[in-house]
């Protein structure tokens, strides 16, 4: 294979890696707290892009479903569900613990036990399980395809997106899609949904980080990391660089001669800003 082609085909991964490194470098190399947060954001965003790109299929559309499909598909559901239930072929993986009588207690209402839905390793459902190979060799932007209806492959799984009701039915539907009916190619929605969650987490992290930066600025008057360190060293040892430190005058471990804590309990902002060692 042409090495250049190999590289170009995977351009989404390269973007992800370059962005990730830029972000990581910023976090490590920059002393400014805001820049650190920006770096963190770039780092996180690169991961978002990675997730989104693995779910995207060239020419695939958003997983929206037409009514016609829905009706036909739903019509096939029931019998196959039973089939899959009866034919539980338990993989060794979790076979040892999940067969106790208590499993019945957790069945969903239609009697479709969790065993049936998890232990299908041997079933065609996972026919495309080795799609990782596909993922590795897939062309640019091309997400892995499994067999149609393979819920684990990157291929679309239309019923999930729409039925929204009984998951067991959905599952069964996943098995029974007639390939003829699946004309539109869908992008895999799951990574996108995951990333929505991750974006929310990322925004929250940024918010907390920025709030901390504001508070640090209030308390220290700076957001440069080296200045913060100096300020802490001065507060603790009296000099910016602890290596220059002389032996502390009043024996080791003495409480710095800050205002006694009782005074600080008044809780005024000044004492917050100075911190306990601020006055020395």
């Amino acid at each position: 294979m042409d090495p250049l082609q190999f590289i170009i085909d995977r351009y989404n991964y390269w973007i992800f890696i370059v962005l990730m490194m830029i972000g990581l470098y910023t976090v490590i190399a920059r002393g400014n707290l805001i820049k650190k947060i920006i770096g963190l954001n770039i780092f996180q965003t690169s991961v978002f892009i990675y997730y989104i790109s693995i779910g995207k299929i060239t020419g695939g559309t958003a997983p929206i479903y037409t009514t016609a499909h829905q009706e036909k598909l739903f019509g096939h559901g029931e019998s196959h569900e039973r089939e899959s239930h009866d034919g539980e072929g338990h993989g060794g993986g979790h076979g040892d613990q999940s067969h106790g009588p208590e499993a019945a207690g957790h069945e969903s209402d239609d009697g479709h036990g969790e065993d049936a839905s998890t232990d299908h390793a041997a079933e065609p459902l996972h026919a495309g399980a080795s799609n990782d190979a596909a993922a590795l060799t897939a062309g640019a932007g091309e997400a892995p395809h499994g067999a149609p209806g393979d819920i684990h492959a990157g291929a679309p799984n239309p019923p999930d997106a729409l039925t929204g009701g009984d998951p067991a039915t959905t599952e069964a539907l996943g098995l029974t899609i007639n390939p003829d009916l699946v004309e539109p190619i869908y992008s895999n929605p799951l990574p996108h949904v995951l990333i929505l969650t991750a974006i929310v987490v990322g925004v929250a992290t940024t918010a907390v980080g920025l709030a901390l930066a504001v508070r640090i600025r209030e308390a220290y008057g700076t957001i440069e990391e080296d200045e913060l360190e100096d300020a802490d060293n001065i507060a603790e040892f009296g000099v910016a660089d602890p290596r220059d430190r002389e032996p502390p005058p009043g024996g080791k471990g003495e409480r710095p001669d800050g205002p006694p804590r009782g005074a600080k309990l008044a809780g005024d902002r000044l004492s917050t800003r100075l911190g306990r060692g601020g006055a020395s």
Partner: peptide, 10 residues
């Protein structure tokens, strides 16, 4: 912990 010791923030 910042009210007792501002280093909590960093």
């Amino acid at each position: 912990g910042a009210r007792v010791d501002r280093r909590a923030l960093t």
